[in-house]
């Protein structure tokens, strides 16, 4: 079992002021945008080198940028193919996962370890689930782009196989203490 001591999540950080949280959100947004819009043009900066950020959140932002890129590829394919309902629903599932994971990411607070772990988990799972769905959508014209995004996606997913580290971090906070976990208080 991985303890929180092995996690990158800070346990004793001071509760950040709203201004700091706004800065954090903006920084995460920039990482996501780079991954989303320039995924093939620029190598991602190692998340651990993102100044001032919790590394797990930086990784999550990068993963969600790739997920959005996959969603865009899927959308283009659905429009180009005049795809039927089954493929349209696959596209909707990718969008649903992305929307949910983005909420987790942008509501995470560095002083709330559970919120960070769940954001990391949400982003990882959204990206992992998007790959086979978009594989079933993408057209031959877009295949090279898809393959390149998939390569980047697999590289970041390999860093935490099956999400085990994020899962254990969250499980430890939920199950290894007697008091009720504060998942109800999201704001």
């Amino acid at each position: 079992m991985t303890s929180m001591a092995n996690s990158s999540i800070p346990m004793d950080a001071e509760r950040p002021a709203p201004r700091d949280l706004a800065a954090l959100r903006a920084a995460l947004g920039r990482i996501e945008a780079v991954a989303r819009e320039e995924a093939l043009d620029r190598a991602p900066p190692p998340p651990s080198e993102q100044a001032g950020l919790v590394p797990d959140l930086a990784t999550a932002a990068y993963q969600l940028g790739l997920t959005a890129r996959l969603l865009a590829l899927g959308r283009r394919a659905v429009v180009a193919r005049r795809a039927g309902q089954a493929r349209r629903f696959l596209l909707a599932e990718v969008a649903l996962d992305l929307a949910a994971a983005r909420r987790l990411l942008y509501a995470a607070r560095p002083d709330d370890a559970l919120s960070v772990a769940l954001a990391a988990l949400g982003a990882r799972d959204a990206l992992a689930a998007a790959l086979p769905r978009v594989l079933d959508l993408v057209t031959a014209d877009e295949w090279a782009v898809f393959a390149a995004v998939r390569e980047r996606a697999e590289a970041t997913l390999r860093a935490d196989l099956a999400g085990g580290r994020a899962l254990e971090a969250a499980a430890a906070l939920l199950l290894d203490q007697d008091e009720r976990a504060a998942i109800e208080e999201v704001c």
Binding site: A100, L167, E168, A171, L174
Partner: peptide, 22 residues
């Protein structure tokens, strides 16, 4: 472990739905 992982994913699921709804 298998149960811990299920619980962690359920927590993420619940929190995400809550944030979306709010």
């Amino acid at each position: 472990e298998a149960i811990r992982w299920l619980v962690a994913r359920a927590a993420a699921d619940l929190r995400a739905a809550r944030l979306l709804t709010y």
